[in-house]
Simulated scan of single mutants.
Amino acid sequence: MASKQMVHMNQGQGETSYARNSGIQNALQNRLKPLIEAATVELCSSTNTSFPEKMLIADLGCSSGPNALALVSIAVEAIHSHCLQLQQPPPEVCVLLNDLPDNDFNTVVKSLVMLHQSNKPAVVTVGITPGSFYERLFTSGSMHLFCLSNSLNWLSKG
């Protein structure tokens, strides 16, 4: 059984903050871009469902700083590009950012302005869901896409 560990990154924008010291994590997220784009296009192109009017995307372990919105921004941009290609209006997108309650969500909220500015004309709303993914975070069947990268290292079989 996996154990819960309550750890958090150094908050704020200071010299020792996660926001200033997360280059390795950013490089990993950049490597995930083609995978997220492919998964998003497949989700939007699914033959057993019609094109969704609304989509929910969650980032588990979003952290803070410049990396907090990287994965979901890739997904939202892929949705927008796919819709342009098909000449369809983009769906409403709800992005839910998750991390442990001690995360610096203030820094994350301040960076949301960039997400809203970069994704026009797509309608994007954002919510924050603090908590451990060892417990239930979302209602069943509500999510279309989960993004995570560096959170997997916290999972173990004990």
Rank of each mutant, 00 (worst) to 15 (best):
Ser63His: 11
Pro90Lys: 07
Pro101Asp: 09
Leu69Asp: 06
Ser73Tyr: 02
Arg20His: 06
Ser111Lys: 10
Ser45Ile: 02
Pro121Phe: 10
Thr125Val: 05
His8Ser: 14
Asn119Thr: 15
Pro121Cys: 03
Ser64Ala: 13
Met9Ser: 09
Gly65His: 03
Thr16Arg: 02
Gly14Arg: 01
Ala122Asp: 07
Cys44Asp: 02
Pro101Cys: 01
His8Gly: 08
Phe51Asn: 05
Gln29Pro: 01
Ser64Val: 03
Val93Lys: 00
Cys44Phe: 10
Tyr18Ser: 00
Glu77Gly: 12
Leu35Pro: 04
Leu112Pro: 09
Leu60Ala: 08
Asn119Tyr: 01
Ala78Gly: 13
Asn98Asp: 06
Thr40Ile: 08
Glu15Gly: 02
Gln11Asn: 11
Asn67His: 12
Cys94Glu: 14
Asn26Phe: 08
Leu69Thr: 14
Ser17Trp: 10
Asn106Asp: 12
Tyr18Trp: 11
Gln5Ile: 12
Asn21Tyr: 10
Arg20Pro: 00
Val123Ile: 11
Ser64Thr: 04
Arg31Val: 08
Arg31Gln: 11
Leu32Pro: 00
Pro52Ile: 12
Pro34Ala: 09
Gln5Cys: 05
Leu71Trp: 01
Thr125Gln: 11
Asn26Ser: 14
Thr125Ser: 14
Lys33Met: 07
Leu35Lys: 06
His116Gly: 06
Leu56Lys: 05
Ser64Asn: 09
Ser63Lys: 03
Gln87Ile: 08
Pro121His: 12
Ser50Leu: 10
Leu115Tyr: 02
Leu97Ser: 02
Lys54His: 11
Pro66Thr: 01
Thr125Trp: 05
Ile36Asn: 01
Arg20Thr: 02
Ala38Thr: 14
Ser111Pro: 07
Ala75Ile: 05
Leu97Trp: 11
Pro90Trp: 01
Ala122Thr: 15
Glu92Gly: 00
Ala70Phe: 15
Lys120Leu: 14
Asn26His: 14
Val109Asn: 02
Gln13Ser: 12
Thr49Met: 06
Ile36Pro: 08
Ala38Lys: 15
Leu112Asn: 00
Ala122Ser: 15
Ser111Met: 06
Leu115Lys: 11
Ala58Cys: 15
Asn26Thr: 11
Ala70Lys: 07
Leu32Tyr: 03
Gln11Lys: 15
Val76Met: 05
Val93Phe: 06
Gly65Phe: 05
Ala27Ile: 10
Gly61Met: 03
Ala75Glu: 05
Ser118Phe: 03
Thr49Pro: 01
Ser3Phe: 08
His116Arg: 13
Ser17Pro: 12
Gln29Phe: 09
Val124Ala: 10
Ala75Asp: 04
Glu42Leu: 11
Gln117Val: 07
Leu28Glu: 00
Gln85Tyr: 13
Glu37Asn: 04
Glu53Leu: 04
Gln85Trp: 13
Asn30Glu: 15
Ser50Gln: 10
Ser46Trp: 07
Val124Gln: 07
Asn98Trp: 12
Gln117Glu: 11
Ser45Met: 05
Leu112Cys: 11
Gln87Asn: 15
Leu28Met: 13
Glu42Gly: 04
Lys110Asp: 12
Ser111His: 10
Cys44Pro: 10
Thr107Lys: 00
Gln29Asp: 04
Asn98Val: 13
Ser50His: 11
Ser22Glu: 06
Gly14Phe: 07
Ala58Asn: 10
Val95Gln: 01
Glu15His: 04
